[in-house]
Amino acid sequence: MGDFFFEWTEWLRNTFLLDWAFWMQETGISRVMVENFWGVPLAQVMHILSIALGFGATLMLTLRINDLAGGTRTVPQVSARYLPWIWWALVFIAVSGVLMLFAEPVRNMINAIFWFKMISLALLLAVTIIFQRGVRAQAHAGGPQWRANALVRTTSWVVVVLWCLVMVGGRWIAYAPV
């Protein structure tokens, strides 16, 4: 698998992304992030906490949908509680991620692992939208005693796996040679 990512990185070096990364490095945002001692650490903390929040909310909802977490709240109540947390977490992940990208654009833009994470994140967003629509549609139609069908249950676990891929990709970025 290492050869695959190495070849992908080599290919990325020969695309417009390298020039774009050099352009990003000259912007004001990049200078502020690099010159401000607290810029990168604060963006990283915001990024990590947002990931923890989004993954935690997803996991709570998934466990409740799959009858693995008890409680007195119905699935519609649990989904109404956690879905906004997931979306706000994704907003903060995007903002902090862009800030971190501008801090080290060359290192990230030609990094195959970074693009693996971005593809995983795009899939996560798409599947989360599908998941959310399925939960809301069934929850409103089924009332308080609603139980998820097999598709919604499976989709919930796919969302959890995608979150894990995003987290693994994020950690892996630091160790990928560029």
Rank of each mutant, 00 (worst) to 15 (best):
T72C: 10
T74P: 05
T74H: 08
V75C: 08
V75L: 08
P76Y: 07
Q77V: 03
Q77K: 08
Q77M: 07
Q77R: 13
V78H: 00
V78L: 14
V78S: 10
S79Q: 15
S79P: 00
A80Y: 01
Y82Q: 10
P84I: 13
I86R: 13
W88N: 10
W88R: 08
W88Q: 06
A89E: 02
A89G: 06
L90S: 14
V91W: 04
V91A: 13
V91Y: 11
F92A: 06
F92E: 08
I93K: 11
I93N: 13
I93G: 02
I93Q: 14
A94S: 07
V95I: 15
V95Q: 01
V95H: 00
V95E: 06
S96M: 04
V98D: 03
L99C: 10
M100W: 07
M100N: 09
L101D: 00
L101H: 01
L101S: 12
F102N: 09
F102P: 05
F102C: 09
A103Y: 06
A103R: 03
E104N: 10
E104L: 10
V106K: 08
V106R: 12
M109G: 02
I110W: 05
N111W: 12
A112T: 07
A112F: 06
A112H: 07
I113L: 09
I113F: 04
I113E: 10
F114A: 07
F114K: 03
W115S: 01
F116L: 05
K117H: 06
K117G: 01
K117M: 07
M118A: 09
M118C: 02
S120W: 00
L121Q: 01
A122N: 00
A122R: 06
L123A: 14
L123V: 03
L123E: 12
L124N: 00
L125N: 11
A126T: 13
I130D: 07
F131S: 01
Q132R: 12
Q132E: 14
R133S: 10
G134L: 10
G134M: 15
V135Y: 02
R136L: 15
R136V: 13
R136A: 10
R136T: 15
Q138A: 13
A139R: 09
A139W: 09
A141S: 12
A141G: 02
G142V: 01
G143Q: 04
G143S: 02
Q145I: 04
Q145G: 12
W146D: 04
W146V: 14
R147E: 08
A148P: 03
N149R: 11
A150C: 00
A150D: 14
L151S: 11
L151H: 11
R153Y: 03
T154Q: 08
T154V: 14
T155P: 06
T155K: 11
S156N: 05
W157S: 01
W157H: 07
V159P: 05
V161A: 15
L162Q: 09
L162D: 11
L162F: 07
C164D: 00
C164T: 15
L165S: 08
L165F: 12
V166W: 02
V166G: 01
V166F: 02
M167H: 03
M167I: 15
